[in-house]
Design a protein around this nucleic acid. Structure first.
Lengths: 140, 140
DNA sequence: CTAGTTGCAAAGAGTTTGCATGGCG
DNA sequence: CGCCATGCAAACTCTTTGCAACTAG
């Protein structure tokens, strides 16, 4: 299963970047851009291929953001991803939600609805406090 | 609020299609394809423009499916969208979740986390019972 | 040495936009 | 009639793929 292949400079760089940004949602382009600036450019294709590989192996979670496209999140341990994310449709801000109520919800959904939630891939959309207030002002 | 624009054959067709498929998640291409087959083809651009318009007016909800791209859901009443969706990563099945616990969650998140959830745009990812069982068999 | 990797560029898929024509009101 | 809507195709963005050169083990 482990079949991870060779250890290369590029993969090291990408993995490092992800570890440095653990828990954050990054896009392939972010990684490529960062590495390019750092003086060790890596081809976009390689970034995608590596991320795809890591996604399959479970090292990173992939999800699609309506505004930004594919996003990847590094999770050191599968079970560490006990938290969910809230994404503000207004400002695009990403909020980490670490709340015991979610565990209850998971249990409830698993039991009553026969569905096992995947925290790493689930993103809640809505409006943050600031944008909510802003909208009230603008809306007349 | 602006009663946007004219009443045209194309918009009627698109609205009809959406009403016929209320609650289902359809893609722009699905609509265009259906109308083309029905003998009243509508340009893709028009479909996108109309859906965009309806999204802004709140008639339909838009969300991005990791596999299929942009999806739209027609909701007869804004407040009828009191339900969320569960999407199985295994078989792609979409499950409607209409559960009072979600209301509690909304209140909780609004109060404790200052974030207002948008049911129409939030999709929970995870694994349905069937795929969960299937996976257990295959995994070993 | 050999197979897995990389990078470039071309290919794709999905969505948006410009512009001239057509149709609603 | 005026203005909005439509269609087509070109433009775009993001992601994938083909292929020759490259490199880790």
């Amino acid at each position: 299963m482990a079949r991870t292949g060779y250890h290369t400079r590029q993969r090291e760089l990408i993995a490092d970047f992800l570890k440095t940004h653990e828990g954050e949602h990054v896009r392939a382009a972010d990684i490529a851009a960062h590495l390019a600036v750092s003086g060790s450019p890596v081809g976009v294709a390689t970034v995608y291929r590596t991320l795809d590989m890591m996604t399959k192996s479970g090292e990173v979670k992939k999800y699609i953001d309506p505004d930004a496209g594919a996003c990847y999140v590094f999770a050191s341990q599968p079970c560490d991803s006990r938290h969910y994310h809230l994404k503000c449709s207004g400002c695009g801000k990403l909020i980490h939600l670490d709340c015991s109520m979610m565990s209850d919800l998971e249990v409830h959904i698993a039991r009553e609805h026969s569905f096992e939630l995947d925290p790493g891939r689930t993103v809640f959309y809505g409006t943050c406090a600031e944008c909510g207030a802003k909208r009230k002002d603008n809306d007349k």
